[in-house]
């Protein structure tokens, strides 16, 4: 393995229904179609060296998923970004590609797990159709006022009760229809539900064990304020990264890998116009 690339990708629109296994197969095939010289593991059943840092659940959209890919030859990250994106189905979109170990963190050998350590928290947006903004705001206030909120869920280790309040770094209602959210909005509007009430929640939730997921927060909101959305919520992960103590937001977890100065940055070699964490992500409509 000559080069390692960290890749940020998005799972948008109807492609949010892909499972993690689906994505991993799609990426493997896209890598082959794009002619990217992926490294393979040794052994009887060689596997391409592609590893994933966590994964949003099936049905959850995301603007910030991460994978790492090992190459047998050095490739321009910008080219890889464009080629891989073109080879993936629309809705699985490559946002950013950064080589590992050439940036500020480049001098030290990269420890296993070091990257996932950077993913301290996620920023989520939850769209609740059929819920009024005032009901949502009241529920959020009650949630934030509580010291702890115990929910019960089936985890891999069986049924568990755990507190969801402590992991919530921030939670607020967000004004109106998020700009550019056409992938969900358009379809719903076509169905004639655009005039129905709709609340948007935004939250920053720390990664912990057991994981506190957006649906756990919704369970918590139901427990403290009887908030019961009439239809399935649309959940989008907007960002993952280290918690920024100053802003309370999330920093870009790829920043430590980036070169401070880079030749030819004008050809898109940088973050390729990706939305910065914390900003409203522009979500491309998936062509119908």
């Amino acid at each position: 393995m000559i080069q390692r690339l960290r890749v940020r990708y998005a799972k948008r629109g109807r492609l949010r229904f892909t499972s993690h296994r689906d994505i991993s197969r799609a990426v493997e095939r896209a890598v082959r179609r794009a002619g990217i010289p992926v490294a393979f593991s040794a052994g009887f059943t060689p596997h391409p060296k592609i590893s994933y840092a966590g994964a949003a659940a099936t049905g959850v959209a995301s603007e910030a998923e991460y994978l790492e890919i090992g190459l047998t030859e050095t490739r321009d990250p910008a080219r890889v970004r464009a080629d891989l994106d073109a080879a993936l189905p629309s809705g699985l979109d490559i946002v950013d590609v950064v080589p590992v170990g050439t940036g500020r963190a480049g001098d030290a050998p990269v420890r296993p797990g070091a990257f996932t350590d950077r993913l301290q928290a996620s920023e989520w947006r939850i769209r609740l159709d059929g819920v009024s903004r005032s009901d949502a705001a009241a529920a959020v206030a009650a949630f934030m006022a509580a010291d702890d909120i115990e929910v019960e869920r089936l985890t891999k280790k069986g049924r568990r009760r755990f507190d969801v309040r402590a992991a919530v770094h921030a939670l607020e209602t967000s004004p109106g229809e998020p700009s550019g959210d056409r992938s969900h909005g358009q379809d719903r509007r076509a169905a004639g539900v655009a005039d129905a009430p709709c609340a948007i929640l935004r939250m920053v939730v720390r990664h912990c064990t057991p994981a506190v997921r957006p649906d756990d927060i919704l369970t918590g909101l139901r427990l403290v304020a009887d908030l019961a959305p009439p239809s399935p919520p649309l959940v989008t992960r907007l960002a993952q990264g280290p918690l920024d103590a100053d802003t309370g937001g999330l920093a870009d977890p790829l920043d430590p890998d980036r070169e401070p100065v880079r030749d030819g940055a004008g050809d898109g070699a940088g973050p390729a116009g990706d939305p910065r964490p914390g900003e409203a992500a522009s979500v491309d409509a998936v062509s119908a």
Partner: peptide, 23 residues
């Protein structure tokens, strides 16, 4: 019919099979 189908997909097993968009 997708706008009517989409909100229902979280309720079924393996929703991706009803979404289309194959390469």
């Amino acid at each position: 019919i997708f706008p009517r189908l989409e909100p229902l997909l979280p309720r079924v097993q393996k929703p991706i099979q009803y979404v289309g968009g194959e390469l």
